Each structure stands twice: as C-alpha cells, then as structure tokens.
Simulated assay, not measured.
Amino acid sequence: MTESPSAPVGFIGLGNMGAPMARRLLDWSGGLVVCDVRTEATLPFTEAGASRAADPAALAARARLISVTVIDDAQVIDVVTGPAGILNTAGPGTVIAVHSTISDRTAENLAAVCADRGVEFVDAPVSGGAAAATRGGLAVMVGGSDAALELVRGPFGRFSDLIVHAGPVGAGTRMKLARNLLHFVAFTAATEAQCLAEAAGLSITDLGKVVRHSDAVTGGPGSIMLRDTTAPIPSGDFWLPILTHVRNLGEKDLSLALALGERLDLPLPLAELALTRLADGLGVGRPLLDKEPS
C-alpha cells in the first residue's frame, strides 16, 4: 500500500479524545469516514462532510488507514477482530492505528493476527489531552514498522506536533505507560504536597498556582529526562555537576519538608521514599560521588 493524501481515513471512537482528533481530519483530501456506537456522536461529523459507517467492518471496506480511539483492551480487540470488526473486510495493506492506552501484549497479539491478513498494526497512544488534540498539539508514540510510520505521518500530523517512533509494535504502548507512570505518581505527590500545605494553614489553591507557574518555566519532571541512560554518571560527564546540584537541592528541600511534616504530625511517605531514592535515580548516588579517594 502506498498511502497518499487522496486516500480516505477512517476514525473509530468519537469520545473525549477521539472527537477532537477526528475533527482535525475533517478536511483530509481523501475524505473522512467515522464510526461510533453512539449515532449522535457521528452527527457533527456527517454534518461537516464526513461519511458514517455503521460498524468497524463497514468502515474498513471504505478506508485503508484506520485510527481507533476506544476505552480499553476489550473494546480494541472487538473493534479489530470481533463479529463486526475491521478484519472482516480490511484488504491487504490496510493500516490500523490504535490510540487507546492498552496492554503492550494486546498490541503485539493483535499485530500478529493482523499480519496473517496482510494488515499492518500500529500502536500509537497519545499524550496531551483533549485540549492538545483540539489545537493539533498531541504527542504520538508510535510502535510499528518504519514503513507504517511513514504511512501514518500525514494524518497523525493533523492532530499532533510531536511524533516519536518508539520502536516495533508494543513500544509505543510501553512508552505511554512509562509516561503515565510519571503522570499519576506526580499526581499522588501533589496530593501529599497539598496535605502539607493545608496542615500548615496555607491555601492549596495558591500552591497550585505556584506549581503551574514554575513548572511552565522549568519544565517540571521532564526537565531531568535528557540523558541516554539511567546508569550512574561517570566522572567528567557533562551531566555530573548539573544533576549533583539537583540532588543536593532535592535532598535539602525534602529534608526540610519532612521536618515540617513531623512538627505538624503529618506523615509524608512519598517524600520519605523520594529522599532515599533521588540520588541513585539521578545517577549521582553518594557511594559513587562522595566516597573518599583511596
């Protein structure tokens, strides 16, 4: 298959994420075919010129590049292999791109089933939320072949401004899981910070304003994710003094926060864990840096 701007694109799943992504494809020169179990979800698209398919199989009979944005593994499996699934009608060379966050094993298993039918499967989860989808600013993490990546670049470029080829099928999902691990651990840390602020008689709303303001400047946790490895940093490496400085500041501030929590009789288990793991996580653990020369 040679994908071109004249080929129709299909989009299955028009929920909170799928709808703004699909809207960015309404003016795709090859046309847009949409499908959702809720007929009312397709109406804004058909009114704007898109075509509607009754089910994934009907959509696959008309589109050769198909984006899927449904809720979970079970729905993805049904959309691809179910009684009215894509593989019932998909011709050889069809590309199925799943944007849902699913298990990497599910992605690999579906890729094998699709390959038996001459269909290319890509796991392509996204990051950035509905607001980024609306303005075309999503990040897409692609797991699939080099050839498949080139086929999806055009449509994906409508709703994203960062496309990362993570590796073979499954790698896109693994990258999304690592990204969301950071997201929700950070959310849990935010709840602990709020508890500390509240116990100290502070406004947690004002704290939130400070966090959003400073993270917009510093980049937040992503600002330290610049190295090629998590191994200990060797002497003479460019990053050694930078991340040593981060470690020193972090350990000082975590210790002060823990002391405040102790005075307020407030346990801070994540802060305690961070204090023990920060140095090694940054690659500048004290056994490496601070041992006396022999």
Rank of each mutant, 00 (worst) to 15 (best):
S223M: 07
E108T: 15
F11G: 06
T205A: 12
G172F: 01
R105Q: 15
L25M: 06
P44Y: 00
A124S: 15
A133T: 10
T276D: 12
A132H: 09
L202K: 03
V98P: 04
A139Q: 09
D72K: 11
T134M: 08
F238H: 13
G167C: 08
E262G: 13
R117Q: 11
P8R: 09
D55L: 05
L182C: 14
L162C: 11
C114V: 09
V68P: 00
D116K: 14
E120D: 12
H245W: 01
I204L: 07
D161N: 15
A178H: 02
V169L: 08
I86H: 03
A231L: 13
I224P: 05
A112H: 03
M21G: 04
H213M: 15
W28N: 06
T229A: 13
V68D: 01
G283D: 05
R158P: 03
A131M: 04
T101D: 10
L249K: 01
V34W: 03
E40A: 14
A131D: 10
D78K: 11
F184Y: 15
D78H: 08
A147S: 13
A190F: 14
S67Y: 14
P234K: 11
T89S: 14
D280F: 02
P234G: 12
V142K: 02
V126K: 09
G201Y: 08
D78I: 03
I12C: 10
S255Y: 03
P221E: 08
A139P: 00
K291H: 12
D73V: 04
P92W: 05
A199M: 05
L87R: 01
S223G: 00
A178D: 05
V126T: 10
L25C: 00
D206Q: 15
L249Q: 12
T191Q: 13
I163V: 12
R247V: 04
T230C: 07
D27T: 15
D27V: 03
G15M: 07
P83W: 02
L202M: 15
R105L: 12
G93A: 06
R263H: 14
K291I: 11
S203Y: 01
P56A: 09
V119G: 10
I163K: 00
G118K: 09
E198P: 01
A178C: 13
